[in-house]
């Protein structure tokens, strides 16, 4: 017996160790939501499709027990384009893209797979580095953090993060880091109108914050990378929402910020573009029970 899915997840996989370990995070999400999981593997044309098919079937075996699990094998030379194509055909709430171990030189010269996906997707992207302790996935999501950047209007992201926290019955922690005083700060202050004083930032965020109980605000002064880790540890965040601009860096090579891979919790990166996903599926989907199990394997090209 299963319910109509209220959280649609797309999981592109290369069968790496990191992909297998993402299973824990999916189980955590599936605990509260009736998820629809689409696992996609892209293989080069001309290879053994039967072998790839069998591997895809065996990948993350426990997903067969979830309400909806679809596995799609795609033959393509360009994996990000093929996955973006799948993403454009259906609605997804989350794309799971864990950080993989990459060879040193390659990671310097080429944009990461996540970075390339980030440029093509409007769907929120879930990611996690190797520093997230395994115990983080042992219990339900209890604390959701949202990194607020006042260089842009964060209201749509706050709404999404707040709705997510409410669905998971979690406490929402709004985090903001005010840069510490330096000569360079004067220059950046000229370019934007973000507040440089914690109290002003606090007041501005409180005006934007969703009006519901269970919302905390933490404003720190310092460097984002270091202070964020401390703030996340303080609020025991199980998941953090960030804006795409905070997640990607580099003009020539749009890379995923390495700082995010060193955080003690997974991160959901929200898109910068015209928000295609303005509401999660669970916000509008009626939960109705249906009998049966939907698991299928599809070969696309």
């Amino acid at each position: 017996m299963y319910s109509v899915p209220d959280l649609r997840i797309l999981f592109p996989t290369s069968f790496s160790d990191a992909c297998f370990q993402t299973g824990r995070a999916i189980a955590q999400l599936a605990d509260r939501c009736h998820i629809s999981l689409t696992i996609v593997h892209v293989t080069r044309p001309g290879g053994s499709t039967a072998a790839a098919y069998r591997e895809l079937e065996s990948f993350l075996g426990e997903a067969d027990h979830y309400d909806h699990c679809r596995r799609i094998l795609i033959e393509s030379d360009c994996a990000p384009a093929a996955i973006a194509d799948i993403a454009s055909q259906s609605r997804f709430d989350l794309v799971m893209t864990p950080a993989s171990d990459r060879l040193g030189l390659h990671s310097l010269l080429a944009p990461s797979f996540r970075g390339r996906l980030l440029g093509r997707f409007k769907t929120p992207m879930w990611t996690s580095g190797a520093t997230v302790p395994a115990g983080r996935f042992r219990h339900r999501i209890r604390h959701v953090a949202c990194l607020v950047d006042l260089d842009y209007d964060p209201s749509s992201h706050l709404t999404l993060a707040s709705a997510f926290a409410a669905r998971f019955d979690a406490r929402l922690h709004l985090l903001h880091v005010v840069p510490s005083i330096s000569e360079g700060l004067l220059l950046s202050a000229l370019e934007g109108d973000r507040p440089l004083h914690p109290e002003v930032a606090r007041a501005q965020i409180l005006r934007l914050a969703p009006s519901r109980p269970g919302v905390d605000l933490d404003v720190a002064i310092g460097e984002r990378a270091g202070d964020l880790r401390r703030m996340l540890a303080r609020c025991e965040a199980d998941l953090m929402f960030v804006h795409q601009r905070q997640a990607a860096r580099g003009v020539v090579f749009s890379r995923f910020a390495r700082d995010l891979d060193r955080l003690p919790c997974p991160v959901v990166c929200l898109s910068d573009r015209d928000a295609e996903l303005d509401r999660w599926t669970f916000e509008w989907q009626q939960r109705t029970d249906t009998v049966g199990v939907e698991n299928e394997l599809v070969l696309a090209s």
Binding site: R24, A27, H65
Partner: peptide, 19 residues
Amino acid sequence: VHALRCHLRQQMPFAELRQ
């Protein structure tokens, strides 16, 4: 057996047990 696997791997088992 599924719960024991999840227990040892520090994974939540309930989504699997729901069926």
